[in-house]
């Protein structure tokens, strides 16, 4: 069983029904640790030590966040800036993340259709997530395709419940599957 670390960043979690449903679906499961970054670091003073220790123990890492202006909320970026240190995560001696798997789990107001080349946002969600993909690559991690809940402004309670359930399955499979190579091509 692999250890899964969910790094969750939402500046107004109490108002996000979608993320509440997702987080609820994955809470209290063995070997799935959720770090609620905005609750841990309300003043953006991220404890690098604590974060690196959590990373070190995990084999699967999830950046779980809403998409704001085609990117992540600022604390998530702060986390990347501070925690993925030169000489620890990359560069000479930066070997501690090597071989781990990482993926984005994202919620977006825009629908699936909006994130197409002929859609309103002109690019696919994967294109907007390139910085994350490249970050992972620089740290010698395997970047997996994202888990996405799109169109959260209009989603029905039923669909949301289904999505939350599939998020749970997604993480359980990452935790338990013997071989993760098929994930890369999803």
């Amino acid at each position: 069983m692999r250890k899964v670390l969910v790094l969750f960043a939402h500046p107004k979690f109490e108002h996000s029904e979608a993320n509440q449903a997702l987080i609820q679906a994955i809470s209290g499961i063995e070997n799935i640790e959720i770090r609620d970054l905005y609750e841990l670091y309300p003043d953006f003073n991220i404890s690098i030590q604590a974060e690196q220790e959590a990373l070190f123990e995990a084999e699967i890492v999830i950046w779980h966040h809403p998409i704001y202006w085609y990117s992540c909320p600022p604390l998530m970026k702060q986390w990347i800036d501070l925690v993925l240190e030169f000489g620890w995560a990359y560069g000479p001696g930066g070997i501690y993340l090597k071989g781990k798997y990482i993926a984005n789990a994202i919620t977006s107001g825009g629908s699936q259709e909006a994130y197409q080349y002929d859609g309103r946002n002109n690019y696919k969600i994967e294109d907007f997530l390139r910085p994350f993909e490249q970050t992972a690559r620089l740290c010698n991690m395997t970047y997996l395709p994202p888990f996405q809940v799109a169109g959260t402004h209009k989603i029905s309670a039923f669909d949301l419940k289904k999505k939350a359930e599939s998020y749970r399955k997604f993480l359980l499979e990452l935790r338990d599957a013997a071989d993760l190579s098929h994930f890369k091509n999803l």
């Binding site: 003073n45 690098i48 800036d81 501070l82 993925l84 240190e85 030169f86 000489g87 560069g91 000479p92």
Partner: peptide, 18 residues
């Protein structure tokens, strides 16, 4: 001590030495 990332000193050093 907290934020090496925002200081390019150490990176510069490493890059230069390489």
């Amino acid at each position: 001590v907290n934020d090496h990332t925002w200081d390019s000193d150490s990176i510069k050093e490493a890059v230069n030495s390489e």
